[in-house]
């Protein structure tokens, strides 16, 4: 078995007395689609924030591509290849659709201030390249026609998609999607599932998914980890997870005695 792309080893974060995520161990391999589920407040988004460097672990380690990411800032990790979307959409609301994606392409570009000011041939070539790249990406996701729209004026579903496109523009190896199906109707969810699968095959990247909608998670994920009160209570294929008594207990509660489950 090859080395996992992302490796959480007993990752723990405590806020004062509260252990938001405790001893979480999880491997994500290249091009794998992993779901992270659990009841509200189980620590799923916090786990994302640990992986993306928004929070630092209080104990345990996280390795990405064989590197310990301890102490790295979110923008450093994006350069390494971790991109994400947010539970409550966080687009650059005053920028156009095109510019939202464009802003995310610049981390792989050498040209900085000097080029932007001097505007030599190299600058124009690079800007042209960015434009082609961005438009290509937008077209794949059927957002090309909206390129000049202000991001905040888009319909909700398009905003969600744009956020994914923006994340892909950073050329990630691992894409973290935080509740992408939130607020979607069944048809949109169906389309989203196809979209996620499509991204996985088209871009050949690993995807990690936090999601409440069981149909979405069970439908597309190859592996699922279940969190409850910050701890992993189960991990396995969708079929295994659905049968797992601990998972059923966590979601539905146990019948009669409620001491152990």
């Amino acid at each position: 078995m090859s080395q996992p792309l992302l490796q959480l080893d007993q990752a723990t974060i405590r806020f004062g007395g509260l252990t938001a995520v405790g001893d979480l161990s999880l491997d994500v391999h290249a091009n794998e689609l992993v779901g992270l589920i659990g009841p509200n407040g189980a620590g799923k988004t916090t786990a994302f924030n640990l992986i993306t460097g928004v929070y630092q672990t209080t104990a345990g380690t996280i390795h990405f591509g064989g590197r310990n990411i301890r102490g790295m800032k979110p923008h450093d990790l994006t350069k390494l290849g971790i991109a994400r979307t947010f539970q409550n959409i966080r687009l650059f609301s005053s920028l156009s659709v095109f510019d939202n994606v464009r802003a995310a392409t610049q981390l792989h570009r050498a040209h900085g201030i000097r080029n932007a000011l001097w505007r030599g041939i190299g600058f124009h070539r690079a800007e042209k390249e960015v434009e082609t790249q961005v438009l290509e990406l937008l077209d794949i996701f059927d957002l090309g026609r909206l390129r000049d729209e202000e991001a905040k004026s888009l319909p909700y579903g398009d905003q969600r998609r744009l956020e994914i496109v923006r994340a892909l523009a950073t050329k990630p190896k691992l894409l973290l999607l935080d509740e992408p199906a939130a607020g979607m109707n069944p048809t949109e969810k169906e389309a989203l599932m196809k979209l996620i699968k499509f991204i996985q095959t088209k871009f050949q990247i690993a995807i990690m998914l936090v999601e409440h909608d069981m149909k979405v998670v069970m439908g597309i994920c190859e592996k699922i980890a279940v969190l409850e009160y910050g701890r992993k209570i189960a991990e396995g294929t969708p079929v295994e997870i659905q049968k797992d008594p601990k998972v059923i207990a966590a979601y539905l509660g146990t019948e009669g005695e409620d001491d152990d489950a």
């Binding site: 993306t52 923008h75 994006t78 966080r90 687009l91 802003a103 392409t105 610049q106 040209h111």
Partner: peptide, 26 residues
């Protein structure tokens, strides 16, 4: 010129949403 470049869109991105900008490698 600074602002009207791919590089310069970062300034506005930081203005709009610092957390998002940071996770986009800015």
């Amino acid at each position: 010129t600074l602002v009207n470049s791919t590089y310069g869109r970062g300034f506005i991105a930081v203005n709009d949403d610092e957390v998002a900008a940071s996770s986009m490698g800015i």
